[in-house]
Design a protein around this nucleic acid. Structure first.
Length: 415
RNA sequence: GUGGCCAUAGUUCAGUUGGUUAGAACGCCAGGUUGUGGCCCUGGAGGUCGAGGGUUCAAAUCCCUCUGGUCACCCCA
């Protein structure tokens, strides 16, 4: 075979699209109910936008981005996530000047050049939301409720929500130093990856998946134990709002997440139905990011969720079985005259809003009937010389096998 | 980026210790009396055995390289 999809990319085939569309429509419906409006940004941006927002030292920026020079030698990157571009659009179009609070959602492909595995692709799809302009913990909670509600409406009830507070510019630096001092004491025993992080991003050491690192850092001070007054209150509000909404969650003091821009709240939703890539959604607050990207100081919160991973969970639970569309009526033409008539009639019905189909391959009656059956057509009308002469035909119900007379002038389909 | 496993019809898989024209099921196509599907029956098409090299009288089968897939590490959606 000459051409294949690029490693880590996939065709979404006709038999799968009904399931995708169903998921997308639930996402859009829930977003609408929560009063979020869709935003669509380009799939590629200036490389600097991502480097600046996500963080130069993160894995995403340092080794996973699809970056290339375009013909004018500008460095371009295929978006690895949705927040950066959304905020860029927010700033560029002065959305903050038009209303004090902006609530938007997006849905579309993202790109990261990682080694593919279960639940991880190089082009994958995310949906997510951002609320810009308010620092209320209510919005932090809304960002958790949104994906949970979408999952619930799709029939998923088993997931776990982990939350943490990663502090702010006031309390994080002091904690960071404290943690670094502790980490340096056990430096030589840490895994290579963690050693690198001790200086660059010590909080991430606590989030290491390495078993030995976990044991070594077991008694270490946690960020959420060293929050400033403002962050403490904020975190407590988030928790009490979750309690009030009866949403089960777990405080995980080690949760940091891989993007540098989070402040205060960080959260993650995981599912045991997934393999080792078990994160279904993640998000958090980013009160410094808009300013970092050149906008006015604006607080914000958001989340992002993977659609492929959601579909994996749904298929494991045997949910989201959406039947693809089938013709309401299938015409069988017997001779050339009838074939032309059925083709024209099919077009007429289609334009009136009925899904109709004919045979285009010049097949036998038996074959045409088989085709109608294969396509799960609801009704079949066989048209030949006789039918065209009398202007009446038999409407066959393919489910019951029953045949009733219909006028070819005015085809009425029982509802 | 590192590692394990895998690669045979459209699909899911068989294929003995290397040995004739590489099989099955499902799917697809066509028939089973003059113009009717589903079940059933009959027949048919469809494979450079991932690619390249090597060992051998002989390779789908053994060895090497590459490519692709998959899972895991790392990280994340």
């Amino acid at each position: 075979m000459k051409f294949r999809t690029i490693k880590g990319t996939k065709d979404i085939l006709p038999e799968e699209t009904a399931g995708w569309q169903n998921v997308e429509s639930v996402i859009r419906r829930v977003m609408r109910n929560f009063n979020y409006q869709e935003i669509r940004t380009p799939t590629f941006e200036q490389t600097g936008l991502f480097a600046r927002s996500i963080g130069e030292l993160t894995d995403i920026v340092s080794k996973e981005m699809y970056t290339f020079l375009d013909r004018s030698e500008e460095s371009i990157t295929l978006r690895p996530e949705g927040t950066a571009a959304t905020l860029r659009a927010y700033i560029q179009n002065n959305l903050g000047e038009q209303s004090p609070l902006t609530k938007v959602y997006y849905i579309g492909p993202m790109f990261r050049q990682e080694r593919p595995q279960a639940g991880r692709l190089r082009q994958f799809h995310q949906f997510g939301a951002e609320a810009l302009g308010a620092s209320s913990p209510q919005l932090d909670v809304e960002m958790m409720v949104l994906p949970l509600e979408i999952y619930k409406q799709l029939g998923i009830d088993h997931f776990s929500l982990k939350i943490n507070s990663v502090g702010c510019e006031k309390c994080r630096p002091a904690y960071k130093q404290l943690l670094q001092t502790e980490l340096r004491k056990i430096f030589t025993q840490l895994s290579h990856d963690s050693q690198v992080r001790v200086e660059q991003n010590p909080l991430r050491v606590l989030d290491s998946k390495d078993k030995k690192d976990r044991e070594l850092t077991a008694g270490m001070p946690l960020m959420n134990e060293h929050l400033c007054e403002e962050c403490t209150v904020h975190f407590a509000s988030v928790r009490s709002l979750l309690d009030a909404l009866n949403i089960p969650y777990e405080v995980d003091g080690r949760l940091v997440r891989g993007l540098d821009y989070y402040t205060k709240t960080a959260f993650e939703i995981t599912s045991t139905a997934l393999g080792s890539q078990d994160a279904l959604a993640g998000g958090g607050r980013y009160d410094l990011l808009v300013e970092e990207l050149g906008g006015k100081q604006t607080p914000g919160v958001g989340f992002a969720a993977g659609i492929e991973r959601l579909l994996i969970v749904l298929s494991k639970l045997n949910e989201n079985k959406i039947a693809s569309s089938a013709p309401v009526i299938f015409f069988v033409g017997l001779d050339e005259t009838a074939r032309i008539w059925t083709f024209l009639k099919t077009n007429e019905l289609r334009r009136q809003g009925t899904c109709a189909e004919v045979d285009y391959l010049g097949r036998s009656v038996k074959s045409q009937m088989r085709e109608a059956n294969r396509q799960q057509a609801q009704y079949v009308i066989v048209v030949g010389e006789q039918e065209l002469k009398t202007k009446t035909a038999k409407l066959k119900n393919m489910h019951t096998g029953e045949e009733t007379a219909v006028s070819l002038e005015k085809i009425e389909i029982p509802s």
